[in-house]
């Protein structure tokens, strides 16, 4: 077995494969299919201070090689999370990262402080890229000044590992990665979903209740990969890549383009064991080439 360990700031992962926020619940939902202790980390559902009902149905539309979602951060809020969900997460033998969301900078700060107290949560992923909420979310992640403000404020309030999740719905994603690095983030993760929409000609209506939603799945992979590559060449902090990864080969593409770790999202809906098979195939790829560690191939396409 090759050495698959990788570092996200001060956090060491046993391998580079994580489950993406909003696509793995709180992990327990997948326990019949995967042994969570085999994963690098799991990023649990987007969490807010207050409980949220999310957007009205329909929230999903299948598209060519992908899907649109407009879930809108449905979750029960931090109080419920701390009381009823956290205790079971604390027993997992893998890193559990919470995806943090808010309407205002103050919300993000308060939520980060609350999570800082949870000993078994070593990191947060600051979501400034959710396209499905009217306030907060992508509004922070698509405006450089707002992004800087919220990242700086959360960095100040939160002492553990801070990951910033970036939006692809910008002209130059590297600008936001640079801002994250300058404000003290230990890693950036990208991409969140691409803003998209679909219309049903039969009903003459949009397929999503919110008209627009976030596109994920293989349809976005080339775009996501390009952004990960650009970002990895721009910043020194680790880049966590995602967007349409369906198997080990897709994961290897992101790693070779510069991702120190990857997240599996939509693929889990179709094949819940994808993260595990990706780990196995990364390992066998390295072994076949007689490479002793993952570090040999992270960003290898940039080395020539």
């Amino acid at each position: 077995m090759a050495d698959l360990r990788t570092k996200i700031g001060s956090l060491e992962l046993r391998n580079p494969v994580m489950l993406a926020s909003g696509t793995c619940g709180y992990g327990a939902e997948l326990k019949d299919f995967i042994d969570l202790s085999k994963l690098g980390a799991i990023v649990v559902k987007g969490t807010t201070l207050e409980p949220r009902e999310g957007n009205p149905y329909p929230r999903m539309a299948e598209t060519a090689s992908g899907m649109l979602n407009a879930v809108g951060l449905q979750n029960k809020g931090i109080d419920y999370f701390e009381k009823h969900i956290y205790p079971s997460l604390a027993e997992y033998d893998t890193h559990v990262i919470v995806n943090v969301n808010g309407n205002t900078v103050e919300d993000y700060i308060r939520l980060a402080r609350r999570i800082e107290h949870l000993a078994a949560i070593p990191a947060i992923e600051l979501n400034i890229s959710c396209p499905n909420v009217k306030q907060g979310g992508m509004i922070f992640g698509t405006n450089p000044a707002s992004a800087r403000e919220v990242i700086a404020a959360v960095r100040n309030a939160y002492s553990k590992t801070l990951i910033v999740k970036l939006s692809p719905n910008v002209t130059d994603i590297t600008e936001f990665a640079r801002i994250s690095e300058e404000e003290g983030a230990e890693a950036v993760s990208l991409v969140n979903t691409l803003l998209g929409m679909a219309v049903d000609p039969r009903t003459m209506k949009p397929k999503l209740s919110t008209v627009t939603g976030g596109l994920s799945g293989p349809a976005i992979k080339p775009v996501a990969l390009r952004m990960v590559w650009q970002t990895a060449r721009t910043v020194k902090i680790p880049v966590i890549g995602m967007g349409g990864i369906m198997n080990g080969n897709d994961a290897l593409e992101f790693i070779m383009a510069g991702a120190a770790a990857v997240q599996i999202g939509t693929a889990t809906f179709i094949e819940p064991r994808t993260a595990l098979t990706a780990i196995e195939s990364i390992d066998s790829f390295l072994s076949e080439r007689k490479l002793d560690s993952l570090a040999n191939i992270v960003g290898i396409i940039n080395r020539n």
């Binding site: 696509t23 999310g54 449905q74």
Partner: peptide
């Protein structure tokens, strides 16, 4: 028969408004 993506409670796409919330 709501539209579903995952079928196992991880995507939250298939919600139904009920007296106890979505």
């Amino acid at each position: 028969e709501n539209l579903m993506a995952c079928g196992m409670g991880i995507c939250l796409c298939c919600i139904v408004p009920t007296n106890t919330g979505n």
